[in-house]
Design a protein around this nucleic acid. Structure first.
Length: 520
DNA sequence: GATTTCACGTA
DNA sequence: CGTACGTGAAATCC
């Protein structure tokens, strides 16, 4: 493995035997896997490394938490508390400088200086990166492999590579962006917002309220105004107002206004101006493992783009979009990671809910509710009865979920199938932990799949990751290769990730011009 | 000026 | 009284 550190035009390299000042060409032509303090530095590289070990990404898998700067990463593998964060003002503090001259990155107390990357020799930082990688790898191997029948490298090492690949992919997603049909986008936004200025948009609703004395953007004001029209609601959320559509014409108008206002404020002209570049690419910031369970996140609203707007994501000339959705991924993941043989048998089918329904003796919709209720910790309503049957039919899966919930309730951290530590904290909400072991494991499977797809793609690019969906932008002549790759990558990923479980993972793939186009 | 509440889109 | 996320407007806090 080759550790790489970049600082300006300096490139520090280390291969375990020696460390030296290197050239970009050495990195580009190296056939070794690269170790990086953070894959984010690849933004500075005019190349796309095939495989990296991202120390920050692996650190978050092993130890959780939000900090992933080198000093914190270093501290964790040395089983010590993270030092105070880098502080530009502290650097100017003469007393601190007098105590700790900036000569070596590792201080006398064994900690890595928070500002080491500023002053230390880059080749030395590369050597340290290699050390940390070895320690992380050892720590990962200490976690037991959860698979009943390991068929390849230790699963937690697979996770390390996949999470690193996801971090690398994030830098590419940020750089590439989504192909955006600007003309269609501007046109569609114009139609959806009804009117360009607020007053004109508000007018029809205010007319039906028969007053100007209501602020449509103030929920309290709207609630009062509705009360004056004889509609009493605890809050004005649209699902609650839905029942009053026929009670008064203003409700219908208000709900339509809400949709228009939503587009105007969040996905309007300002949004296009802010996030679509001169090259007609829609860009956001990406994070490879955010939040409690380690899902990918994206800014610029990329993960919550309303369905009615998705037609504006369109392939460029000579290209197609290839969209691929994993089917019923969370229950399949539950079947795999819990080791429930019966549930895995259901998860061996194309449609998981049909055999579950047969086993429970209920119809398919009820079976679906029961499975989702089990995974998400729902206890009320119709789910309650179905849950009891789930307990009897799939005791192993349900015990797995209950154990996670109990751990969360008493504040014990849990680990996902891939080895990610999910800190529960003192807040200890049981449902959170119950869901995290499923959602988090699904995120790991997804990232492993995405990593395999990324490495197999030719000139195509992954342009969107959406929890269980990949969107590729590929030259027309490579579309069939891409479709085959999406399927084969899932098969090879599932083969080791869920080996011996009997669970099948399925994917819907469609070649389209626009993201909105139907699957199949 | 920063934080909280409400609301709503996606998985 | 199912989980997670990001976003924006207004109210609220300081």
């Amino acid at each position: 493995m080759l550790a790489v550190v970049l600082r300006g035009s300096e490139i520090g390299l280390a291969d375990g035997r020696r460390c030296w000042l290197g050239t970009l060409d050495e990195v580009a032509t190296s056939t070794e896997r690269l170790v990086l303090w953070s894959a984010a530095v690849t933004r500075l590289l005019p190349l796309r490394p095939r495989q990296v070990w991202d120390l920050a990404a692996v650190h978050k898998v092993l130890y959780g938490g939000r900090r992933d700067d080198p000093a914190a990463v270093w501290a964790a593998v040395h089983d010590r508390p993270a030092p105070a964060r880098s502080d530009d003002f502290a650097l100017l503090d003469s007393t601190l400088a007098a105590v700790e001259p900036y000569t070596t990155p590792v201080r006398s107390d064994g900690s890595l200086h928070p500002d080491a990357w500023r002053f230390a020799a880059v080749e030395e930082l590369a050597a340290l990166a290699l050390e940390v990688q070895a320690q992380q790898q050892a720590a990962l191997l200490e976690l037991p492999d959860p698979r009943p029948v390991p068929t390849g490298p230790h699963l937690r090492l697979v996770t390390a590579w996949a999470e690193s690949a996801a971090a690398l992919l994030c830098t590419e997603l940020e750089a590439d962006g989504l192909p955006f049909d600007r003309a269609a986008g501007t046109d569609l936004v114009g139609r959806l917002i009804q009117a360009d200025d607020r007053a004109t948009r508000d007018a029809p609703v205010l007319a039906l309220f028969r007053t100007d004395d209501v602020d449509l953007r103030n929920p309290a004001s709207v609630r009062e105004a509705l009360l004056r029209r004889g509609i009493e609601v605890p809050d004005t959320r649209s699902w609650r107002l839905e029942a009053f559509r026929t009670a008064h014409p203003v409700v219908d108008a208000l709900l339509a206004w809400r949709k228009a206002e939503r587009v105007a404020t969040t996905y309007g002209y300002d949004w296009i101006a802010a996030h679509v570049g001169a090259d007609d690419r829609l860009r956001g910031e990406w994070s490879a493992a955010d939040g409690g369970a380690g899902r990918m996140t994206a800014s610029a609203g990329l993960h919550s783009l309303p369905a009615e707007l998705r037609s504006v994501i369109a392939a460029e000339p000579g290209h197609v979009l290839v969209r691929a959705d994993l089917g019923q991924v969370e229950p399949r993941v539950l079947a795999a990671v819990s080791g429930d043989r019966g549930f895995a048998q259901a998860a061996a089918q194309d449609d998981l809910y049909t055999p579950v329904a047969a086993m429970l003796g209920v119809d398919r919709p009820t079976a679906k509710v029961a499975v989702l209720a089990a995974m998400y910790g729902q206890t009320s309503g119709a789910a309650g009865q179905a849950l009891k049957q789930m307990e009897q039919t799939y005791p192993t899966a349900l015990a797995f979920l209950r154990a996670a919930e109990e751990a969360g309730r008493v504040g014990t951290d849990v680990r996902t199938h891939g080895g990610r530590l999910v800190p529960v904290g003192s807040g200890g909400v049981g449902r959170f932990a119950r869901n995290a072991v499923v959602q988090g494991a699904a995120a790991e499977l997804f990232k492993a799949w995405a990593a395999a797809v990324r490495n197999g793609l030719g000139r195509g690019r992954i342009v969107l990751c959406l929890h269980d969906e990949l969107l590729l932008h590929v030259p027309v002549e490579e579309s069939e290769d891409a479709v085959r790759l999406l399927r084969s990558a899932l098969e090879s990923t599932a083969a080791h990730w869920a080996s011996g479980s009997g669970v099948r993972f399925v994917v819907d793939v469609a070649v389209v011009q626009r993201w909105s186009e139907a699957k199949g």
